[in-house]
Design a protein around this nucleic acid. Sequence first.
DNA 1: AAGCGTCCCAACCGCAGGTTG
DNA 2: GCAACCTGCGGTTGGGACGCT
Length: 333
Amino acid sequence: MGRPPSSAKDGVKKGPWDAEEDKKLVDFISKHGPGCWISLPKLAGLNRCGKSCRLRWINYLRPDIKRGNFTAEEEQQILRLHAILGNKWSAIAMQLPGRTDNEIKNYWNTHLKKRLIRMGYDPMTHEPRTDLMACLRILAMSNNGLNDLLNHNPLDVNAVKLDYLKQILQSTDAGAPNLVSSISTPLLKGSPLLNSLPQLENQQASFSMGATSNLHLQPLHHPITTALSASPMDLQIDPQATFPPSLDSMPFDGTAAGLSCGFFQGDNLVENISAAWDFESASDFVPSFISDADTPVSNPGDVRSSSSLHCGGGASGRSSPWTEILFDHSIIQ
DNA sequence: AAGCGTCCCAACCGCAGGTTG
DNA sequence: GCAACCTGCGGTTGGGACGCT
């Protein structure tokens, strides 16, 4: 299909553009406009292929290009759009005036993608990574004490947490979905723990993901989420409950959820885990650093106004719920 | 100061899709 | 319908900048 890339032609300069070439290109386009790129180099007196001229103009010389660092708003917009559009950089760029697809792509690959990975999110799906079990096993290899835990049924426990978290994340402004019915993990189907979840859902007015920040507080004070987030030392199991033995022995202190972060941190695995995810802390269901003092959260213990942090963006039916609040924290910079 | 590794981004490459004759 | 032409897109890369030892 088509023809060989024009850059394959011999005698055409490649590599960085110099000031003289830039001037020739700008002068020509300012007189004639960005017309036929194939014939432009010859007409403009440039020893470049048309493709290279087009790229140079679009990505660098265009007068409406916005230079400089991306703002926090732009970051959030990129994250939201990427959650919807994926790697459709040109489509994302259309929503960010003055930014080019190449610039956004570069920024994504060098900053945002890495942050998501460090946080334990799949940069493509914007959802928590589900390979936690593999991480747990790696950790267990260096910690025989964890082997016993792993040999019980920790995967189910992790799945419960991730499942529930996933449902919360996918809730919309229109109201939280039925979390109980949508939980797929067989482990807790019909369990007293799960049966109590509707109470939590009834609080969705302050728990909906439409108000991302509400997650900071509301789940924390609910008995169910308190139980989910309790450490093995303080978890009180209902005597009527029929949990597998692993549930009350599983370290529900964020270890599991944080592992995917630590997985990328080599020797500092455990430390980074606790830094990234801390279900035992006051920021239940969100990475612990969200409630740190240097975040935009002025009063981390309070339920914040949903309007101030609403995800917005009418098209963002399924955007990443973290994006508004996570990325300005030093731990992921 | 030198060497080394990592980061970042401008530019390149290959491909797909639309247009034209 | 077909092939050549042209544009646009997304993935990848090369090398300069920067930081660390």
